[in-house]
Design a protein around this nucleic acid. Structure first.
Lengths: 169, 169
DNA sequence: ACATCATTGTACAACGATGAACAAAAAGCA
DNA sequence: TGCTTTTTGTTCATCGTTGTACAATGATGT
Protein backbone atom coordinates (compact mmCIF):
# COMPACT_ATOMS: atom_id res chain seq x y z
CA UNK A 1 0.00 0.00 0.00
CA UNK A 2 2.96 2.31 -0.12
CA UNK A 3 2.26 3.07 -3.77
CA UNK A 4 -0.74 5.18 -2.76
CA UNK A 5 -2.97 3.40 -5.29
CA UNK A 6 -2.16 6.11 -7.82
CA UNK A 7 -1.81 4.19 -11.03
CA UNK A 8 -2.62 6.99 -13.45
CA UNK A 9 -0.31 9.83 -14.41
CA UNK A 10 -2.93 12.53 -14.49
CA UNK A 11 -0.98 15.16 -12.58
CA UNK A 12 -3.92 17.05 -11.21
CA UNK A 13 -1.72 19.63 -9.55
CA UNK A 14 1.20 21.58 -10.98
CA UNK A 15 3.50 20.40 -8.20
CA UNK A 16 3.00 16.84 -9.37
CA UNK A 17 4.66 17.64 -12.70
CA UNK A 18 8.36 16.81 -12.61
CA UNK A 19 9.29 19.73 -14.86
CA UNK A 20 7.26 22.10 -12.72
CA UNK A 21 9.02 20.95 -9.58
CA UNK A 22 12.37 21.23 -11.30
CA UNK A 23 11.70 24.77 -12.30
CA UNK A 24 10.51 25.78 -8.86
CA UNK A 25 13.81 24.53 -7.50
CA UNK A 26 15.66 26.61 -10.07
CA UNK A 27 13.70 29.72 -9.15
CA UNK A 28 14.24 29.26 -5.42
CA UNK A 29 17.95 28.60 -5.86
CA UNK A 30 18.25 31.77 -7.92
CA UNK A 31 16.41 33.79 -5.33
CA UNK A 32 18.62 32.49 -2.53
CA UNK A 33 21.81 33.01 -4.49
CA UNK A 34 20.81 36.59 -5.20
CA UNK A 35 20.07 37.31 -1.56
CA UNK A 36 23.32 35.73 -0.42
CA UNK A 37 25.32 37.64 -3.01
CA UNK A 38 23.65 40.85 -1.93
CA UNK A 39 24.83 40.30 1.63
CA UNK A 40 28.37 39.32 0.69
CA UNK A 41 28.66 42.33 -1.60
CA UNK A 42 27.37 44.73 1.01
CA UNK A 43 30.74 45.82 2.36
CA UNK A 44 31.75 46.92 -1.13
CA UNK A 45 28.62 49.07 -1.21
CA UNK A 46 27.32 47.57 -4.41
CA UNK A 47 24.45 45.22 -5.24
CA UNK A 48 24.03 42.46 -7.82
CA UNK A 49 22.63 44.81 -10.47
CA UNK A 50 25.68 47.05 -10.18
CA UNK A 51 27.99 44.07 -10.38
CA UNK A 52 26.27 42.87 -13.52
CA UNK A 53 26.95 46.24 -15.08
CA UNK A 54 30.56 46.39 -13.93
CA UNK A 55 31.36 42.90 -15.17
CA UNK A 56 30.02 43.72 -18.61
CA UNK A 57 32.03 46.90 -18.77
CA UNK A 58 35.03 44.89 -17.69
CA UNK A 59 34.55 42.53 -20.61
CA UNK A 60 33.24 44.95 -23.22
CA UNK A 61 34.92 48.31 -22.91
CA UNK A 62 33.26 51.15 -24.78
CA UNK A 63 29.87 49.46 -24.92
CA UNK A 64 26.79 51.67 -25.24
CA UNK A 65 23.91 51.88 -22.78
CA UNK A 66 21.59 50.23 -25.24
CA UNK A 67 23.87 47.26 -25.81
CA UNK A 68 24.43 46.93 -22.08
CA UNK A 69 20.72 46.92 -21.36
CA UNK A 70 20.18 44.24 -23.98
CA UNK A 71 22.87 42.01 -22.54
CA UNK A 72 21.39 42.33 -19.07
CA UNK A 73 17.83 41.80 -20.31
CA UNK A 74 16.61 45.01 -18.74
CA UNK A 75 15.09 48.20 -20.08
CA UNK A 76 17.06 51.21 -21.24
CA UNK A 77 15.53 53.35 -18.53
CA UNK A 78 17.07 51.07 -15.95
CA UNK A 79 20.55 51.93 -17.20
CA UNK A 80 19.66 55.59 -17.20
CA UNK A 81 18.93 55.30 -13.49
CA UNK A 82 21.88 53.17 -12.39
CA UNK A 83 24.76 54.42 -14.51
CA UNK A 84 24.76 58.01 -13.22
CA UNK A 85 25.17 56.62 -9.70
CA UNK A 86 28.22 54.60 -10.67
CA UNK A 87 29.56 57.58 -12.57
CA UNK A 88 29.21 59.87 -9.56
CA UNK A 89 31.12 57.33 -7.49
CA UNK A 90 33.96 57.47 -9.98
CA UNK A 91 33.64 53.84 -11.00
CA UNK A 92 32.73 54.37 -14.63
CA UNK A 93 32.99 57.00 -17.34
CA UNK A 94 30.48 58.00 -19.99
CA UNK A 95 31.84 59.64 -23.10
CA UNK A 96 29.74 60.68 -26.05
CA UNK A 97 30.56 59.14 -29.39
CA UNK A 98 31.59 61.74 -31.96
CA UNK A 99 30.29 59.91 -34.99
CA UNK A 100 26.88 59.24 -33.43
CA UNK A 101 25.99 61.93 -30.95
CA UNK A 102 23.11 59.90 -29.57
CA UNK A 103 25.15 57.19 -27.90
CA UNK A 104 27.21 57.25 -24.73
CA UNK A 105 30.18 54.92 -24.61
CA UNK A 106 30.89 53.36 -21.22
CA UNK A 107 34.17 52.35 -19.66
CA UNK A 108 35.57 51.51 -16.24
CA UNK A 109 37.86 53.86 -14.38
CA UNK A 110 40.90 52.32 -12.67
CA UNK A 111 38.98 52.48 -9.38
CA UNK A 112 36.06 50.77 -11.03
CA UNK A 113 38.27 48.04 -12.44
CA UNK A 114 39.77 47.35 -9.02
CA UNK A 115 36.38 47.21 -7.36
CA UNK A 116 35.05 44.95 -10.08
CA UNK A 117 37.88 42.49 -9.57
CA UNK A 118 37.21 42.35 -5.85
CA UNK A 119 33.50 41.84 -6.39
CA UNK A 120 34.03 39.17 -9.04
CA UNK A 121 36.24 37.28 -6.64
CA UNK A 122 33.44 37.28 -4.07
CA UNK A 123 30.87 36.17 -6.60
CA UNK A 124 33.06 33.43 -8.01
CA UNK A 125 33.84 32.12 -4.53
CA UNK A 126 30.15 32.04 -3.67
CA UNK A 127 29.25 30.16 -6.83
CA UNK A 128 32.08 27.68 -6.41
CA UNK A 129 31.07 27.05 -2.83
CA UNK A 130 27.42 26.54 -3.72
CA UNK A 131 28.12 24.23 -6.65
CA UNK A 132 30.89 22.06 -5.22
CA UNK A 133 28.21 19.54 -4.33
CA UNK A 134 27.44 19.03 -8.01
CA UNK A 135 29.92 17.31 -10.33
CA UNK A 136 31.07 19.26 -13.34
CA UNK A 137 29.16 17.04 -15.73
CA UNK A 138 25.94 17.90 -13.92
CA UNK A 139 26.78 21.57 -14.21
CA UNK A 140 27.21 21.13 -17.93
CA UNK A 141 23.84 19.43 -18.15
CA UNK A 142 22.31 22.31 -16.21
CA UNK A 143 23.97 24.84 -18.47
CA UNK A 144 22.69 23.08 -21.58
CA UNK A 145 19.14 22.96 -20.27
CA UNK A 146 19.25 26.62 -19.35
CA UNK A 147 20.66 27.64 -22.71
CA UNK A 148 17.79 25.82 -24.37
CA UNK A 149 15.29 27.60 -22.17
CA UNK A 150 16.90 30.94 -22.89
CA UNK A 151 16.80 30.26 -26.61
CA UNK A 152 13.16 29.22 -26.45
CA UNK A 153 12.03 32.23 -24.47
CA UNK A 154 14.21 34.66 -26.37
CA UNK A 155 12.79 33.57 -29.68
CA UNK A 156 9.20 34.53 -28.96
CA UNK A 157 10.42 37.39 -26.84
CA UNK A 158 12.66 38.92 -29.46
CA UNK A 159 9.90 38.67 -32.02
CA UNK A 160 7.76 41.13 -30.13
CA UNK A 161 10.35 43.75 -29.47
CA UNK A 162 13.81 45.21 -29.56
CA UNK A 163 14.96 43.34 -32.64
CA UNK A 164 17.65 40.65 -32.69
CA UNK A 165 18.86 39.97 -29.17
CA UNK A 166 21.87 38.02 -28.08
CA UNK A 167 22.09 38.18 -24.28
CA UNK A 168 25.34 36.23 -24.20
CA UNK A 169 26.44 38.29 -21.20
CA UNK B 1 50.53 32.00 -31.24
CA UNK B 2 46.78 31.61 -31.47
CA UNK B 3 46.75 29.45 -28.35
CA UNK B 4 47.82 32.44 -26.30
CA UNK B 5 50.42 30.29 -24.56
CA UNK B 6 47.85 29.44 -21.91
CA UNK B 7 48.44 25.80 -21.19
CA UNK B 8 47.46 25.84 -17.54
CA UNK B 9 43.94 25.80 -16.11
CA UNK B 10 44.33 28.95 -14.08
CA UNK B 11 41.00 30.50 -15.03
CA UNK B 12 42.02 34.11 -14.80
CA UNK B 13 38.53 35.34 -15.47
CA UNK B 14 35.26 34.26 -13.86
CA UNK B 15 33.68 33.50 -17.21
CA UNK B 16 36.32 30.88 -17.84
CA UNK B 17 35.06 28.82 -14.90
CA UNK B 18 32.56 26.21 -16.03
CA UNK B 19 30.52 26.50 -12.84
CA UNK B 20 30.41 30.27 -13.18
CA UNK B 21 29.15 30.04 -16.74
CA UNK B 22 26.59 27.46 -15.69
CA UNK B 23 25.25 29.69 -13.00
CA UNK B 24 25.05 32.71 -15.26
CA UNK B 25 22.89 30.65 -17.60
CA UNK B 26 20.65 29.70 -14.69
CA UNK B 27 20.27 33.31 -13.61
CA UNK B 28 19.47 34.52 -17.13
CA UNK B 29 16.95 31.75 -17.71
CA UNK B 30 15.25 32.64 -14.45
CA UNK B 31 15.11 36.29 -15.37
CA UNK B 32 13.62 35.54 -18.78
CA UNK B 33 11.10 33.08 -17.39
CA UNK B 34 9.97 35.66 -14.85
CA UNK B 35 9.54 38.33 -17.50
CA UNK B 36 7.65 36.00 -19.79
CA UNK B 37 5.39 34.82 -16.99
CA UNK B 38 4.70 38.43 -16.06
CA UNK B 39 3.46 39.09 -19.58
CA UNK B 40 1.35 35.96 -19.85
CA UNK B 41 -0.22 36.67 -16.48
CA UNK B 42 -1.01 40.27 -17.33
CA UNK B 43 -4.57 39.69 -18.53
CA UNK B 44 -5.42 38.14 -15.15
CA UNK B 45 -4.12 41.31 -13.53
CA UNK B 46 -1.67 39.52 -11.29
CA UNK B 47 2.11 39.22 -11.24
CA UNK B 48 4.48 36.39 -10.30
CA UNK B 49 4.70 37.48 -6.64
CA UNK B 50 0.92 37.33 -6.32
CA UNK B 51 0.80 33.94 -7.98
CA UNK B 52 3.41 32.60 -5.58
CA UNK B 53 1.18 33.68 -2.72
CA UNK B 54 -1.98 32.27 -4.24
CA UNK B 55 -0.42 28.90 -5.00
CA UNK B 56 0.77 28.55 -1.44
CA UNK B 57 -2.66 29.43 -0.07
CA UNK B 58 -4.08 26.89 -2.49
CA UNK B 59 -1.86 24.20 -1.05
CA UNK B 60 -1.77 25.29 2.58
CA UNK B 61 -5.08 26.69 3.65
CA UNK B 62 -5.07 28.59 6.92
CA UNK B 63 -1.36 29.37 6.78
CA UNK B 64 -0.11 32.44 8.64
CA UNK B 65 1.68 35.42 7.11
CA UNK B 66 4.89 34.45 8.83
CA UNK B 67 4.85 30.92 7.49
CA UNK B 68 3.99 32.20 4.05
CA UNK B 69 6.84 34.66 4.05
CA UNK B 70 9.26 31.93 5.08
CA UNK B 71 8.13 29.61 2.31
CA UNK B 72 8.54 32.35 -0.25
CA UNK B 73 11.92 33.44 1.14
CA UNK B 74 10.79 37.02 1.55
CA UNK B 75 10.41 39.35 4.51
CA UNK B 76 7.31 39.65 6.64
CA UNK B 77 6.87 43.25 5.60
CA UNK B 78 6.51 42.11 2.03
CA UNK B 79 3.43 40.09 2.92
CA UNK B 80 2.05 43.03 4.85
CA UNK B 81 2.19 45.05 1.66
CA UNK B 82 0.84 42.49 -0.81
CA UNK B 83 -1.83 40.63 1.13
CA UNK B 84 -4.13 43.61 1.77
CA UNK B 85 -4.23 44.16 -2.00
CA UNK B 86 -5.37 40.61 -2.65
CA UNK B 87 -7.84 40.88 0.20
CA UNK B 88 -9.38 44.06 -1.22
CA UNK B 89 -9.78 42.29 -4.55
CA UNK B 90 -11.73 39.55 -2.82
CA UNK B 91 -9.23 36.83 -3.67
CA UNK B 92 -8.18 35.94 -0.14
CA UNK B 93 -9.46 36.23 3.42
CA UNK B 94 -7.59 37.05 6.60
CA UNK B 95 -9.12 35.86 9.83
CA UNK B 96 -7.54 36.33 13.23
CA UNK B 97 -6.79 33.20 15.20
CA UNK B 98 -8.68 33.09 18.50
CA UNK B 99 -6.08 31.13 20.39
CA UNK B 100 -3.24 33.38 19.31
CA UNK B 101 -4.45 36.87 18.65
CA UNK B 102 -1.21 37.87 16.98
CA UNK B 103 -1.55 35.73 13.89
CA UNK B 104 -3.78 36.14 10.85
CA UNK B 105 -4.80 32.94 9.12
CA UNK B 106 -5.03 33.15 5.35
CA UNK B 107 -7.34 31.36 2.96
CA UNK B 108 -8.55 31.65 -0.62
CA UNK B 109 -12.05 32.79 -1.46
CA UNK B 110 -13.89 30.87 -4.19
CA UNK B 111 -12.98 33.65 -6.61
CA UNK B 112 -9.37 33.40 -5.52
CA UNK B 113 -9.35 29.65 -6.00
CA UNK B 114 -10.74 29.98 -9.52
CA UNK B 115 -8.22 32.64 -10.45
CA UNK B 116 -5.39 30.59 -9.00
CA UNK B 117 -6.34 27.60 -11.10
CA UNK B 118 -6.36 29.70 -14.25
CA UNK B 119 -3.00 31.23 -13.41
CA UNK B 120 -1.43 27.88 -12.52
CA UNK B 121 -2.52 26.55 -15.87
CA UNK B 122 -0.73 29.38 -17.60
CA UNK B 123 2.41 28.91 -15.55
CA UNK B 124 2.45 25.16 -16.05
CA UNK B 125 2.01 25.55 -19.78
CA UNK B 126 4.86 28.04 -19.96
CA UNK B 127 7.18 25.79 -18.00
CA UNK B 128 6.27 22.74 -20.06
CA UNK B 129 6.82 24.63 -23.26
CA UNK B 130 10.19 25.98 -22.14
CA UNK B 131 11.45 22.63 -20.87
CA UNK B 132 10.26 20.31 -23.60
CA UNK B 133 13.70 20.64 -25.15
CA UNK B 134 15.24 18.95 -22.14
CA UNK B 135 14.63 15.27 -21.42
CA UNK B 136 13.09 14.39 -18.08
CA UNK B 137 16.31 12.89 -16.80
CA UNK B 138 18.09 16.18 -17.40
CA UNK B 139 15.33 17.97 -15.49
CA UNK B 140 15.89 15.62 -12.59
CA UNK B 141 19.60 16.35 -12.67
CA UNK B 142 18.84 20.06 -12.67
CA UNK B 143 16.44 19.64 -9.77
CA UNK B 144 18.99 17.73 -7.74
CA UNK B 145 21.69 20.32 -8.32
CA UNK B 146 19.33 23.11 -7.35
CA UNK B 147 18.20 21.32 -4.21
CA UNK B 148 21.82 20.98 -3.19
CA UNK B 149 22.43 24.67 -3.79
CA UNK B 150 19.33 25.57 -1.81
CA UNK B 151 20.44 23.37 1.06
CA UNK B 152 23.93 24.86 1.04
CA UNK B 153 22.76 28.46 1.00
CA UNK B 154 19.94 27.86 3.44
CA UNK B 155 22.26 26.34 5.99
CA UNK B 156 24.45 29.37 6.45
CA UNK B 157 21.49 31.59 5.83
CA UNK B 158 19.26 30.05 8.45
CA UNK B 159 22.03 30.25 11.00
CA UNK B 160 21.98 34.01 10.94
CA UNK B 161 18.28 34.54 11.25
CA UNK B 162 14.71 33.41 11.45
CA UNK B 163 15.43 30.03 12.99
CA UNK B 164 14.86 26.71 11.26
CA UNK B 165 13.70 27.31 7.72
CA UNK B 166 12.16 24.85 5.35
CA UNK B 167 11.32 26.68 2.13
CA UNK B 168 9.83 23.58 0.57
CA UNK B 169 7.28 25.78 -1.14
C1' DA C 1 16.60 69.01 -49.76
C1' DC C 2 12.77 67.39 -47.31
C1' DA C 3 9.62 64.51 -44.81
C1' DT C 4 9.22 60.33 -42.39
C1' DC C 5 10.70 56.78 -39.50
C1' DA C 6 13.96 54.49 -36.30
C1' DT C 7 17.27 54.70 -32.57
C1' DT C 8 19.42 56.36 -28.24
C1' DG C 9 19.12 58.16 -23.90
C1' DT C 10 16.26 60.72 -20.17
C1' DA C 11 12.23 61.95 -16.96
C1' DC C 12 8.56 60.38 -14.40
C1' DA C 13 5.10 57.70 -11.97
C1' DA C 14 4.00 53.16 -10.26
C1' DC C 15 5.22 48.96 -8.08
C1' DG C 16 7.65 45.15 -5.56
C1' DA C 17 11.29 44.12 -2.11
C1' DT C 18 14.09 45.27 1.86
C1' DG C 19 15.47 46.47 6.55
C1' DA C 20 14.64 49.10 10.66
C1' DA C 21 11.63 50.77 14.09
C1' DC C 22 7.37 49.96 16.37
C1' DA C 23 2.96 47.98 18.94
C1' DA C 24 0.51 44.07 20.50
C1' DA C 25 0.31 39.50 22.13
C1' DA C 26 2.43 35.30 23.86
C1' DA C 27 5.99 32.61 26.18
C1' DG C 28 9.61 31.99 29.47
C1' DC C 29 11.30 32.69 33.90
C1' DA C 30 12.12 34.87 38.49
C1' DT D 1 2.36 37.35 39.97
C1' DG D 2 5.51 40.55 37.49
C1' DC D 3 9.46 41.09 34.39
C1' DT D 4 11.90 40.13 30.26
C1' DT D 5 12.28 38.08 25.77
C1' DT D 6 10.24 36.32 21.55
C1' DT D 7 7.03 36.29 18.03
C1' DT D 8 3.66 38.36 14.69
C1' DG D 9 2.21 41.83 11.93
C1' DT D 10 2.39 46.88 10.46
C1' DT D 11 4.54 51.28 8.98
C1' DC D 12 7.95 53.86 6.73
C1' DA D 13 11.87 55.32 3.95
C1' DT D 14 14.77 53.60 0.38
C1' DC D 15 15.97 51.31 -3.69
C1' DG D 16 15.78 48.63 -8.19
C1' DT D 17 12.73 47.73 -12.21
C1' DT D 18 9.24 48.71 -15.52
C1' DG D 19 6.61 51.11 -19.04
C1' DT D 20 5.35 55.35 -21.07
C1' DA D 21 6.17 59.64 -22.92
C1' DC D 22 9.57 62.71 -24.64
C1' DA D 23 13.74 65.14 -26.99
C1' DA D 24 17.62 64.74 -29.81
C1' DT D 25 20.02 62.55 -33.39
C1' DG D 26 20.60 59.58 -37.29
C1' DA D 27 18.85 56.86 -41.32
C1' DT D 28 15.75 56.20 -45.19
C1' DG D 29 13.19 57.30 -49.23
C1' DT D 30 11.11 60.42 -52.45
Amino acid sequence: MNKKQVTTEHHHFPWDHPRFRSWIAVARACQLMQQTLTRELAHLDIKPPHLDILINLYRFDGITQQELARKLLVGRSNMSMLLPQLEKRGLIERRGDERDKRVLRLSLTPAGRTLTEEAMEIQTALIEKSLTGSPIEDCMTVAQSMERIIATLLKEDGDREHGPSSAER
